[in-house]
Structures are given as C-alpha cells and as structure tokens.
C-alpha cells in the first residue's frame, strides 16, 4: 500500500539516530532517515566511503539502529551482493529463517565513478538489493572535487572554471542493465520518495534509486535552503522525478509550469561565476528544456 500522507511516514519508527556528525542542514541525513523509516528493522545497511559513512559511524558511536557495514569506496554493490548471497544460501540450507532487506547508500562518486563496475556486476547478476545513490554532485568527503555526476558549469575544487561536461545519466545506465525498478527522488518530495523506496524494496531483483541531495558546503548555500533547492531542482526541470518499472518510464511528479533555471542556480555559490554569463545560463536552460521535452514537463513560466 503506497503512503498517502506525511503522517503515515512520520509514524514509522526511526532507525537513524541524532547525534551524527553530518553538517547542519545536510540532505544526506534526511535521505538516510527516510530510507530507514521505510526499510525498517529487518534491514542491513551498506555504505560506500563518503560523507554519510564517516559522519554517521565515527567510533565509538554509530547513528545506525540496524546492522551496518562499510568496507571501502568502490565496492558497496559487491558488499551488498555478498550479504544477499549469504542470506539466500543460509535460508536455502535452513540455517537461518528470517530474510532481510539489503540496502545500499552510496555517494555519486561511489556510484557513478569508482563503484560503477561493481554496481554493473550486481545489476547484471540480478541480485536482490536496493541500491540508492545519494547524489550531492561531487566528492564532498574529500573536500568538493568533481565527480561524474557534477553538473555542467558547477564549480568544484578540481573544476575551478566550472565543469565542462554533463552529468552522467545513472538512470540510463541502470535501465540499460534491464533493472526492473529504477527511480529518481529528492528530499523535497518525500511522499514520492518514500513510495519509491517501498516499491524498490518489493522488487525481486536489483532496484536503483538516484536521489538528488543538496549539500550546503559543496553547493555553497545557507543550510536552511536544503529542501528549497531540492524543490527548485524539480520545478526547473533539471531533476525530473520519474520511475522506470518493467520497461516503462513514468513521471511521478508533474511539473505543469517550470521555473527558470536561474532561480535555482542563483542560490548556489558553485554557479556564482556564471551569474552574468548569459551564454552559459542559456546552455543550462536549454539542457532543462531538453529534459522537459523528454519527460513531458510544462513550459517555463517567468
């Protein structure tokens, strides 16, 4: 049964504890919390190295009220597959009774770049894991270096003049592996996201969620704007919310009237260097227009 309102989500038990060390206003914390509310007690959390991992498992404490494992940066999918294989084998051999959800939370670097090979292997094998990429569009843990998911023109410490390529299409990559369920999500549309997590967990093979996560430090904005930016990413058409199920793409949040991309970009320090550059702004707007045409979003309304 899909969640119908916020109260139903709030009522779910929390398995993500406060007192973690993520920055004030960090969107990754919201993702971790919602994912765990939906996945529940009988779940095993796997993280790739990154902000979420180091800031939620700082010895001697942990923010996770479920079994949790981190091994390295590039192997979260393989680690998850190993857990899946173990539980499947032990249940088959009647050494264990109860099954678990195996959930991965890995950053964009750990997913789109260094971890892509392991993820491809898990997708191809059809392992029953739910892999969620929390995408803050750079390597934040090591101090804001570009990743394959850094958007066009964004400043990072290794793209000081702005990133000159487009974000990797992770959904396209997942879909090309014929995963049964893949979806985009973001924290400002929590009902949508919660329902996607629930659906992903119910799939008998691998499922994938690409979850946009504003990062106050790396995107250079006032922490209070985390949810607002996430909303603007959707409203501008830069982050269409859709799902892919059994071969069909479906928009899950309609955007009848689009906001110009400038409204989104101007709140972020990482785009400051193009604020007066009409040519570059027009390029980003036309990229949003392309996405809008592809996913059936409405026109830009000033």
């Amino acid at each position: 049964m899909p969640f119908k309102n916020l109260k139903e989500i709030i009522a779910r038990q929390d398995f993500f504890s406060p007192g973690h060390g993520l920055c004030a206003g960090c969107g990754a914390a919201q993702i971790a919390r919602i994912v765990m509310k939906i996945a529940g007690k009988d779940s095993i959390m796997v993280n790739a190295t990154g902000c979420l991992e180091v800031s939620t498992t700082t010895y001697p404490w942990t923010a996770w009220k479920v079994p949790y494992i981190h091994v390295a940066f590039e192997n979260a999918a393989a680690v998850a597959s190993g857990i899946r294989a173990a539980y499947d084998a032990l249940i088959m051999k009647k050494k264990l009774g109860k099954d678990v959800n195996v959930v991965v939370l890995a950053g964009d670097g750990g997913t789109a770049d260094i971890g892509l090979q392991a993820l491809s292997g898990a997708f191809e094998r059809g392992d029953r894991i739910t892999y969620i990429c929390y995408d803050n569009e750079a390597y934040m843990n090591t101090g804001i270096q570009r990743s394959g998911a850094t958007p066009y023109d964004a400043w990072t410490t290794t793209s000081p003049a702005g990133q000159k390529t487009l974000k990797k299409d992770l959904m396209g990559i997942a879909i090309a592996h014929r995963v049964k369920y893949a979806a985009t999500a973001t924290i400002s549309y929590l009902l949508d996201a919660a329902n996607k997590v629930e659906k992903a967990l119910s799939i008998s093979g691998p499922s994938f969620i690409h979850w946009l996560q504003p990062c106050t430090i790396g995107w250079r904005y006032d922490p209070k704007l985390t949810v607002k930016l996430s909303r603007l990413a959707v409203k501008t058409g830069l982050w269409p919310l859709y799902e892919h199920y059994d071969g069909i793409n479906k928009l899950t949040v309609q955007v009848p009237k689009r906001t110009p991309v400038l409204e989104y970009l101007k709140l972020q320090g990482r785009f400051r260097h193009i604020m007066d550059n009409q040519e570059e702004l027009a390029k980003i707007q036309s990229y949003a227009d392309e996405l809008a045409a592809k996913f059936g979003l409405g026109p830009v309304v000033e």
Binding site: S17, G19, G21, T56, T57, T58, W61, T62, A63
Partner: peptide, 14 residues
C-alpha cells in the same frame, strides 16, 4: 573487529 553498538544519540550531543 572494529565494531560498535553505542548510539550517537547517547553520547554525541550536537
């Protein structure tokens, strides 16, 4: 084996 069970909410008052 570098294991912990102590919850952040019990010791890390942010």
């Amino acid at each position: 084996g570098f294991i912990t069970k102590t919850l952040s909410e019990s010791i890390n008052k942010t």
